[in-house]
C-alpha cells in the first residue's frame, strides 16, 4: 500500500511537470510570439508580413494541436509506466 501511494504521488508529480512544460510552450507561442514579443520578431518576414502576425493567426493554433497530442501521448506512456492506466 505504501508503495502504491508513493507510486501514485510520483505519477502525479510527473503529470504536473509535463503540464508545466506544455503550458510554458502554450504561453510562449500565444502571449509571447503572437503578442508581447511581436515587435522583436518584426524583422522576420513571412508572406508579406512578420512572424508575430503568422503566430497570431496560424502558428499558435498549430502549436496548440501539437501540444495536446504530445500531452496525450506522454500521459499514455506514464499511465502504462506506473500501471495506473485502465
Amino acid at each position: 500500500m505504501a508503495d502504491d501511494k508513493s507510486n501514485a504521488a510520483e505519477y502525479w508529480k510527473a503529470n504536473v511537470r509535463l503540464i508545466f512544460g506544455c503550458l510554458a510552450v502554450w504561453a510562449f507561442v500565444s502571449y509571447g510570439c503572437a503578442i508581447l514579443f511581436r515587435p522583436l520578431l518584426a524583422g522576420i518576414p513571412v508572406g508579406g508580413t512578420d512572424l508575430g502576425f503568422w503566430f497570431a493567426q496560424q502558428g499558435s493554433i498549430l502549436t496548440f494541436i501539437v501540444l495536446i497530442f504530445f500531452y496525450a501521448w506522454r500521459m499514455n506512456k506514464l499511465d502504462a509506466k506506473f500501471g495506473l492506466g485502465e
Binding site: W26, F53, Q57, S60, Y71
Partner: peptide, 18 residues
C-alpha cells in the same frame, strides 16, 4: 482581432490538461 482565434482554440489546451 487575432485574440478570438487564439482565445477560442487555446482554451482547448488547458481543457485537455487541466
Amino acid at each position: 482581432n487575432s485574440t478570438f482565434l487564439m482565445g477560442w482554440t487555446g482554451g482547448y489546451v488547458i481543457l485537455a490538461m487541466l
